[in-house]
Nucleic acid binder design. Structure first.
Lengths: 154, 154
DNA sequence: GATGTTACTTTGCTATGTAAAGCAATCGAG
DNA sequence: CTCGATTGCTTTACATAGCAAAGTAACATC
């Protein structure tokens, strides 16, 4: 990965292609912390449900809470288990098989980390909304922004 | 499929399989509002970037901000455009093609709605964490919860 | 005019979410 | 005791979709 700064020597000949003091830090909106395993509607719901039910949830309750189909839930649980986010226990209640799902400690932790990234996403969005709403900023009072000249539709 | 309520008569004999006053409302954690088009790491980043830059962003700036590859960004922009979330303008700057991307008004709106759902996800998670931390609740002080008897590992 | 750079687009592979079908155990009716 | 229905999941199959790598086009440079 070496020193990215040095590449500038061969590039910043006659045009500073990126104002040095620019607030646009690279990767600012990459949201690296959004783990694929967690960042998925269904799984997000499952994990949230389990957070609210530390004692665990039965397959069917989970299914209802997240409005998932059987197969769907089954699949996602597999994945979550393989990722060590949940633990799955099999038992019998009223002569029927019953599956109990619980967050692992690691799962709780990783979910918490994920959520903290989500919070920053929300914070970014809110900040942007506020900025857009204020008067002196770029968007100002104009309902539609004029385009930089020389641009035409897609 | 008839009347689901009536099925209860044949079921709620000796076990109310779902306490009527139960807080577990069906679909509580379904998070329906998490639009597929928006709920995607890369696209989420793109939209967040654009929220913070109402005047629009150039292809390459967007690429850097979101740490995406060219192809990747191109593909996502297509999708976002097809969903009418962004508008894309082609132009020439310094004898090079330049693509400017901006949120549409609809895009801004739908993103805001999405974000409000995200906020509720975060709220749920925080609420759960708080509940778990308190003393009198189910998790209490035990580091590991005992399993309901009759359950064995996956 | 050949090589390189910038700025994207297109293509192809792979992974994944989702619906539909499958399976095993039990229950209830006749 | 056999038959069909129900419960509680699992497995399979497919269509989407993300992602990387290759491709294209316009200019710039040597």
């Amino acid at each position: 990965m070496s020193d990215a700064k040095n590449d500038q020597s061969s590039e910043s000949r006659e045009r500073a292609r990126k104002e040095p003091g620019d607030a646009e830090s690279t990767g600012r909106f990459a949201y690296d912390g959004l783990e694929r395993v967690i960042h998925e509607k269904a799984r997000l719901g499952i994990l949230a449900s389990l957070m609210s039910h530390p004692e665990g949830l039965l397959f069917n309750d989970l299914k209802d809470l997240c409005s998932l189909t059987d197969g769907n839930l089954s699949r996602h649980l597999q994945l979550l288990q393989e990722s060590a986010l949940v633990e799955i226990w099999k038992g019998m209640r009223r002569n029927r098989p019953q599956t109990l799902v619980r967050l692992t400690d690691a799962g709780r932790k990783r979910f918490a980390e994920y959520i903290s990234v989500l919070e920053s996403v929300v914070a970014d969005a809110v900040a942007a909304s506020v900025a857009a709403g204020s008067s002196a900023t770029s968007r100002a009072a104009t309902p539609r922004l004029p385009l930089p000249k020389g641009f035409s539709p897609a």
